[in-house]
Design a protein around this nucleic acid. Structure first.
Length: 526
RNA sequence: GCUCCGAUAGUGUAGCACGGCCAAUCAUACAGGACUCUCACUCCUGUGACUCGGGUUCGAAUCCCGAUCGGAGCACCA
């Protein structure tokens, strides 16, 4: 019977394949014109984030769970933005959870807790709840006790290397089959501090002969006798949960519906599912994303960076050479630009190596109409204008927006950039932007004569139009990801503290600090 | 060694669950042009990709198998 249907269908298909498409088109028009319409309407590509697997009208609880052992990076921004964006889409709660359960190798930085919240706020995100794992250690102990009693966890006294041998050969370690009551006794001794670091571990029983070695009896708690940096916690505890355990318990306790995390934690999920099964919980829905690397910034680890900062190689966590949110902020990038950048990147499992170009472009569009224009001359070269008379130049503060003009007094000395001075020779013409035209008469030293004011001449002869700075000026230092530029700038820059301006033909900068005759600016982008 | 992922223009992304709307989307980059007293902004035009090999099918970016390449886990890190 079913065979007949297949044959019949095949016959029709062959017929269709043989026929002239135009004929079929006509037939379709006769039979079902509405389908033609459907054929012609293109599928609209969906904008923004892909939908999440959420029940109709259902809410969502999602989290961003950093270890505050350093400041938030651009990678962190992805977690903050995407998670909060989903919560905004579906409604629900966004939770920040500090996974600060390692006072030793990933020791939290006390200030970083605040930094994270501050950066989050800057991004326009209000967390509905903030949780610190280090406040909830006893909660984890409770579940540990339960699992021991159920026979799903045991205290293991093996040395690390020994346990690895057992694991690699799918052999239970000598401690694995002990009675729960006995395990419980050892567990209490553990948390009371009777054992030394590394001498005992609480393990979750999975399957010691699982084909994936990553899933065999994983560690849940270990002993660390370091003091926790948070004074509220201090040295209250000597037994600390590992991420797989802490995260598993918290994701359930906090009612997480969806988790987005790095794909390096895929196995972590498989391990955690044992705990969920034992406790009869339902695992949240998960999505993974790949690693994100920024072209412009090399690889860096938080601990290595911390060292470099302490040694003075970087000015701090907001050094413009670093991919931290604090650095991006200091450079004057707008939070909207960063958000859009992250949303456009989406959530994919491929590791991405992205360049900051898109972010810069996005930001440029946002700030271009607001940024006042000024002259800044890097690597300044003095030019004497032999017949230069006292003049006041009045360049507009913005080429299209009506922001008024600045005024610059000039006598017979100007400075142009080393780059612009490079190609000059006797007879070269130059337009000093918004001032007048000059002709070079000697290069060593640089001298020029005034040859007219009109733009007509400029349009005709097309000399380079360059920015310049008068004799009465300010020293300007620009800190950028590529290094440090020093030069001269016009006096009015001093009024723009904390603003993003454009140094014409140089790039956008945020004026960070103004002292007597000296300005420090952070380079935003070109 | 064992185990898991992934692969679309220079970069990032859409399309893949359900094969024909795909001579493949959008952004950025790059090139050319318009505008402009900035190399900014804006506008126009152009460049540029389905990793490879088999298979299934009338038809494959989409399904299947293999290879290659890349990433990750097997921690008393997160």
């Amino acid at each position: 019977m079913a065979k007949d249907v297949t044959a019949e269908v095949q016959k029709v298909i062959n017929q269709v394949a043989e026929g002239n498409p135009d004929v079929w088109q006509q037939r379709l028009e006769e039979v079902a014109p509405e389908l033609i319409e459907e054929l012609n309407t293109k599928k609209e590509p969906e904008k923004g984030l892909k939908p999440l697997d959420v029940a109709e009208g259902g809410k969502v609880v999602m989290r961003f769970a950093p270890n505050p052992n350093g400041p938030a990076t651009l990678g962190s921004a992805r977690g903050m933005v995407i998670n909060s964006e989903y919560v905004k889409m579906y409604g629900g709660d966004f939770i920040i959870r500090f996974d600060d359960t390692d006072p030793q190798t990933k020791r939290p930085l006390l200030a970083a807790y605040e930094w994270y919240l501050d950066d989050c706020q800057w991004l326009g995100i209000e967390p509905d709840r903030v949780v610190k794992a280090s406040d909830r250690i006893t909660l984890y102990y409770e579940y540990a006790r339960k699992l021991i009693e159920m026979g799903h966890a045991y205290v293991c006294f093996c040395e690390g290397a020994d346990f690895k041998k057992y694991k690699d050969s799918c052999t239970p370690c000598p401690d694995r089959d002990r009675e729960p009551a006995e395990n419980l006794k050892y567990w209490y001794k553990m948390i009371e501090g009777e054992y030394e670091e590394k001498s005992a571990v609480l393990r979750i029983k999975t399957e010691i002969d699982h084909k994936d070695p990553a899933l065999r009896d994983f560690g849940a708690f270990r002993i660390i006798k370091d003091t926790h940096p948070r004074p509220e916690v201090g040295d209250k505890y000597v037994v600390w949960p590992l991420l797989d355990f802490e995260g598993a318990i918290e994701d359930h306790e906090l009612g997480m519906t969806h988790i987005i995390r790095g794909k390096d934690l895929m196995d972590s999920e498989k391990r955690q599912k044992y705990i969920y099964d034992y406790l009869g919980w339902e695992y949240p829905k998960t999505t993974h994303w790949g690693r994100i690397k920024m072209h412009e910034f090399g690889k860096f680890s938080t601990s290595a960076l911390r060292k470099s900062i302490e040694e003075g190689e970087y000015t701090g966590w907001d050094d413009p050479r670093l991919p931290t949110i604090r650095a991006i902020r200091r450079r004057g990038i707008k939070p909207e630009a960063l958000r859009k950048f992250m949303v456009d990147m989406g959530v994919g499992e491929t590791d991405v190596s992205i360049s900051m170009d898109s972010l810069y472009s996005e930001n440029r569009k946002l700030i271009d109409s607001q940024a006042k224009r000024f002259f800044f001359v890097p690597d300044p070269q003095k030019v004497e204008i032999i017949d230069g008379k006292h003049t006041v130049a009045t360049p507009p503060l913005h080429p299209v927006e009506n922001m008024g003009n600045r005024s610059i007094e000039v006598d017979n000395i100007v400075y142009i950039s080393g780059e612009d001075a490079k190609g000059l020779s006797s007879g070269s013409l130059l337009r000093l932007k918004n001032l007048y035209n000059i002709e070079i008469v000697s290069t060593q030293p640089l001298r020029a004569k005034h040859i007219g004011d009109s733009m007509d001449e400029v349009r005709e002869k097309r000399p380079p139009i360059v920015q310049w700075v008068a004799e009465d000026n300010m020293e300007v230092e620009v800190l950028s990801p590529e290094g440090r530029f020093t030069g001269l700038g016009e006096l009015q820059i001093a009024n723009e503290i904390d603003k993003v301006v454009q140094f014409e033909r140089f790039g956008f900068c945020r004026i960070d600090d103004v002292k007597e005759k000296k300005v420090v600016a952070y380079f935003t982008h070109k």
